[in-house]
């Protein structure tokens, strides 16, 4: 990745984070914490990794992305809007009555959304179905899914993990956002899913561990995933919940709470400053 490319991604990530704040503030609800921890991933996927066309959201040969941790729709919507699937100006209508930006992703109303999700543990199964179908149809497209580290407490996730390995879905890449927090607190206090990587390896997956806020590591990991044949790849990324907004960072309380007007201004000022810093690089 060139320095310019990386700078662009970093700038875009700031804008995606602003979109998360715009969305959740506009909604007076929603899930900023996990949207911000995954903002760099959303940015990398939609601006670098995925083979997609915002002008033709339903293009048949496109790569698919399933947001298994559907509650972080504000992050996905911000990335889709910045990528040109729909106007960025619409983000504050998130969760409003009659808005197409439903609280959780709806594939029939939001351009660019490949699967309706929200009930945890089901998205990865749908992604498995897509990857299996793509192989069956001889399509070259790849399928990506993002799970929360709390989400993997759902038993269905492990049914899907078994399935993906059994059917050798090497066109599937599952990313786990290991921000360490869920609604009720630290994941290892609520119901520890650790050791995550050992479990995934035991299920036969190729596993890569990265810093989820480092684009160089993402580039290497996704290249490795593309080059891995015969088994699916899981990327376990360490992240900071609430990343980019000082008072949200590392706070479980910001899992599903919207910023008020004052908090909105602080967050936007911080993100604008980060963007200016990136642009001055």
């Amino acid at each position: 990745m060139t320095a310019t490319e990386k700078k662009q991604l970093m700038a875009t990530a700031c804008k995606v984070r602003m979109g998360v704040i715009e969305g959740t503030h506009g909604a007076k609800a929603g899930h900023p914490g996990g949207s911000l921890s995954a903002a760099d991933l959303f940015t990398y996927l939609y601006f670098k990794e995925l083979n997609i066309d915002p002008q033709v959201p339903k293009w048949e040969e496109r790569d698919r992305f399933v947001l298994s941790k559907g509650h972080t729709a504000p992050g996905l919507y911000a990335a889709l809007a910045n990528r040109g699937f729909f106007p960025v100006e619409d983000l504050p209508t998130l969760r409003h009555i009659d808005s197409y930006l439903q609280g959780h992703p709806n594939m029939n109303t939001v351009p660019g959304v490949d699967m309706s999700t929200g009930s945890l543990g089901q998205g990865i199964s749908a992604a498995c179905g897509m990857a299996l179908a793509a192989k069956h149809q001889g399509k070259a497209c790849r399928v990506y899914t993002l799970l929360g580290d709390g989400e993997i407490q759902e038993g269905q996730v492990w049914e899907a993990m078994m399935f993906a390995h059994h059917y050798k879905l090497d066109n599937l890449c599952a990313v786990i956002d290991n921000n360490g927090l869920q609604i009720d607190g630290r994941i290892d206090d609520v119901m520890s899913p650790y050791p995550i990587t050992d479990k995934l390896r035991a299920f036969g997956w190729n596993v890569v561990e990265i810093d989820g806020h480092n684009f160089d590591q993402m580039e290497t990991a996704f290249a490795q995933a593309r080059g891995t044949k015969g088994v699916p790849t899981a990327i376990v990324m360490k992240t900071l919940k609430g990343k980019g907004v000082s008072y949200m960072e590392g706070q479980a309380g910001w899992h599903g709470k919207a910023p008020n007007d004052e908090e909105y201004n602080i967050a936007m000022d911080e993100l604008r400053a980060q963007l200016a810093e990136v642009e001055a690089m």
């Binding site: 399933v66 199964s125 749908a126 179905g129 897509m130 179908a133 399509k139 269905q156 899907a160």
Partner: peptide
């Protein structure tokens, strides 16, 4: 080649089928 056993995991099977349907099958 068009029959896929999902094992004893019905919840996964149903959502897998949903994903496959989204691909036009």
């Amino acid at each position: 080649q068009r029959h896929f056993n999902c094992g004893i995991a019905e919840g996964n099977m149903i959502a897998v089928a949903a994903g496959a349907a989204s691909m036009g099958l």
